[in-house]
Write a protein that binds this DNA or RNA. Structure first.
Lengths: 344, 344
DNA sequence: GTGAAAGCGCTAACAC
DNA sequence: GTGTTAGCGCTTTCAC
């Protein structure tokens, strides 16, 4: 990037001169600080507006040592799960007059660290990290350390859907949700299950799987007999998993996808192969992305309130830090639709 | 927000002292500027790394008058169309080491202006505006003027899918696409058409409709007989439009939605009412969002390369400005799937 | 090749 | 209530 040099930009001094006041008065007027008569303040604001003055955020941040901006770290903004979380963060942020910097990590721990560093460099007031962390503590360590330093310097952090980072967290009920969806399928009478999942190295997935295992054990189904197929945590991964399940475990009567995206891929493969859902195979998702109810068959899944989770996380991050990390649970809800039924 | 005061943060001076050099040399070393011996530069970088020094972006931007950040303005990040564009911008931005500020407008011209102002205040190097503009020139005027001032001050601007702003643009073939999708439906033999659309006050929609009209006229179908139903440009809007069409114009054999989101809502209503698609009614979308191919029936639509559009727009914005606005056309492609067929 | 020093545009003491 | 002024942390001439 050939970065742009901003020239000929109005400065606060220009406004002050035009309004016939000192730069300090102008500053106070525009920032709404006390100590200026209403008449003067109003006049300054009017002059500034007419001149089209826009304050330089960098100068302001540097002088004040604060900034009205927050960072949001997601794995992939094109993924509806994160897009909806981002929507919540952006909504509340916009309301609060905050600017939001969004970073992509592509589920790469190194990139995540890099993005966090960049946010710290920008002296954002708060950082919200959405998206699963890694089960391997070594991968967490560097990020954890950087965040710690950031917080000691007065920064605030909130995470969505990950623990072990020692900060305020919004926690979707992954384990309970995994349990609920598996219980639903088991209650329908299914006994030969397959699970389509992303990398088990992500805590979100580990938690959801744990819930599934709980339900199986409780129902007297040996979890070892459940076929767990690991693939990308995407629609494409769902397709691959579905093909593998059909080829290697043709007797399966229910496939539990660990997110909706995979479930969509699975449904698409089953449809292509003319396999009736839920007649021959039931399919479930997880998340309840916007489109889940509009698929055919509509998807039985666990609803997580993504938009609200985004808002809550930002809320936590903006609050005065508590003595110990707060945790805010985001409820889950089993949404039974047309993709599940009793085994044929 | 109780903004945070960043304290106890390392400054460049600390690094310089630790490395036994002057602050100037330290600065040059870290920014890779010439005029420092390799040995010294390397040592400074090593010291900085070990201390965990992160430069203050605000101070740097203020001193240098430049910033390695860009702004992206979208209507709604939760909408897959914009999420995919954002993904493209974030991808290329990440590669170039740029930070990306994303703003929501909610399709509100005032909010859009406000967001643009905020980006200008942040002295971002470039602004990418995605999402349709408004047909009413008055609504454009303020934004246009602000952007003009921004560009005169050295800022760069690129837009996606809107004209009339006098800046570099990535233009999806809305009119051609509208024509292509209508031609497809007409070629199948449909004559009683309905169109489900968002506000005609948005240029994107006006363009797509114009394409549909062209195709109708060319095929000898009076566009006045085409039922154009205006609703929200969302899934919910699609549902409302579908219900209205079924109630008021039961003889329609094809519904053309002006984006995929509406089409998804329409399909969902038709399925609920047990209406066969495409047996009794054909349905088309526009955009080809990721999920379009995985719906049942899979959606016939016009593919726009959203991710690429995002990348191209940022590319344009990062280039040296040309004497006159560049336009880069983003191709379209008719994707025929299962939701269209000959009229019953 | 390296250092000293003058700002970048603003805020926040501190005077008046 | 208003103005003066010393920084905020960095880049970048300009001397050496």
């Amino acid at each position: 990037m050939q970065v742009s040099r901003q020239r000929a930009t109005l400065r606060l001094q220009d406004v002050a001169t035009a309004a016939g006041v000192s730069i300090a008065t102008a500053s106070r007027s525009l920032s709404g600080a006390p100590g200026v008569s209403d008449t003067v303040a109003e006049r300054v604001r009017e002059v500034a507006r007419q001149m089209g003055y826009v304050a330089n955020v960098h100068a302001r941040s540097l002088a004040a040592g604060t900034s009205r901006s927050v960072g949001l770290v997601v794995h992939e903004i094109g993924d509806p799960y994160f897009a909806e979380i981002a929507s919540g963060v952006l909504r509340l942020g916009g309301e609060e007059g905050l600017t939001v910097q969004i970073c992509h990590t592509g589920r790469d721990p190194d990139k995540e660290l890099e993005q966090i560093r960049s946010l710290v460099a920008h002296r954002v007031g708060a950082i919200v990290i959405a998206g699963s962390g890694f089960v391997d503590p070594a991968l967490q360590a560097a990020a954890r350390q950087d965040l710690q330093a950031y917080r000691e310097a007065g920064g605030r952090v909130a995470v969505i859907g990950r623990h072990h980072l020692g900060v305020d967290a919004v926690l979707p009920e992954n384990t309970k949700g995994g349990r609920a969806i598996a219980e639903h399928v088991l209650a329908l009478g299914h006994r030969r299950l397959a699970v389509a999942t992303g990398s088990r190295g992500l805590t979100t997935i580990a938690d959801r799987l744990a819930g599934v295992e709980e339900a199986c054990t409780a129902a007297g189904v040996d979890f070892a007999t459940v076929q767990v197929i690991e693939a990308e945590f995407t629609r494409a991964g769902g397709k691959i998993a579905a093909e593998q399940i059909l080829a290697e475990h043709p007797d399966v009567t229910a496939i539990l996808a660990m997110n909706d995206d995979m479930a969509i891929g699975i449904l698409s493969v089953l449809r292509l192969q003319g396999i009736d859902v839920p007649g021959r195979i039931s399919v479930t998702g997880f998340d309840d992305v916007a489109v889940a109810g509009d698929l055919a068959p509509s998807l039985t899944t666990i609803r997580l309130p993504m938009l609200t989770m985004g808002e809550h996380a930002l809320e936590l991050a903006l609050k005065e830090p508590a003595a110990r990390p707060r945790r805010r649970t985001a409820g889950h809800e089993l949404v039974v639709r047309d993709s599940t039924g009793p085994p044929g």
